[in-house]
């Protein structure tokens, strides 16, 4: 691994932490469920860094959380968070970043805006929920369908994050092209 890769990985892990400190936005659209910015970090890591470095960034972040850094939204952290029903989502994050980065690769010929929106949607929503919902089901002893109902309230917020990810990716591609490592 080059030093540059290491620094970029650490950078996106720190971005995840910084997003966790942002106050949650209460969305009228999502029925008053507070949404946090942190899955935005997952989408950005994948879209900007590409599959391997994106996934490593999220893993490094989760490693810090496990070591005791209170970096999850709401100041949560420590080993305890890996024992809650949301652990499936935490496992889904690095996978989601990987998938997002991978989609970004596959769509190499597409313009940045639609490509990154697609990547963020497939990685940041489909892949993450594919782990998150079974996680709730197993940890909470609920059938899959009920677990899915329990998480559907977060989807509108996640769609907004997809849009923001695409806009950021496009702006960065114009302002600092070298930083869009998934495409270089």
């Amino acid at each position: 691994m080059t030093d540059r890769s290491l620094v970029h990985i650490a950078f996106y892990a720190a971005l995840m932490a910084a997003l966790g400190f942002m106050p949650p936005v209460v969305m009228p659209l999502a029925g008053g469920v507070p949404i946090t910015a942190q899955t935005l970090g997952v989408m950005l890591a994948g879209v900007m860094l590409g599959p391997v470095r994106g996934a490593l960034a999220i893993l490094l972040f989760l490693f810090l959380v496990a070591l005791g850094a209170p970096f999850l939204a709401g100041g949560r952290g420590g080993l305890g968070v890996f024992q809650t029903p949301s652990v499936g989502f935490l496992i889904g994050w690095p996978v989601g970043a990987f998938v997002a980065g991978w989609v970004m690769r596959l769509t190499g010929g597409m313009a940045i805006l639609p490509a990154s929106a697609l990547a963020a949607f497939v990685g940041g929503i489909l892949a993450v929920y594919a782990f998150g919902i079974p996680g709730i089901s197993i940890m909470a002893g609920l059938p899959l369908v009920k677990a899915a109902y329990a998480s559907v309230v977060y989807i509108p917020g996640d769609l907004i994050k997809v849009a923001i990810t695409a806009l950021i990716a496009q702006t960065v591609a114009r302002g600092l092209p070298g930083a869009l490592l998934s495409r270089s």
Binding site: R4, L6, F11
Partner: peptide, 20 residues
Amino acid sequence: LAPFAIQSLRMSDNVAEALK
């Protein structure tokens, strides 16, 4: 968020150079 990303990414490039 976009200017934030650009400014802070530029910093991370510099830190990478300093590490090297």
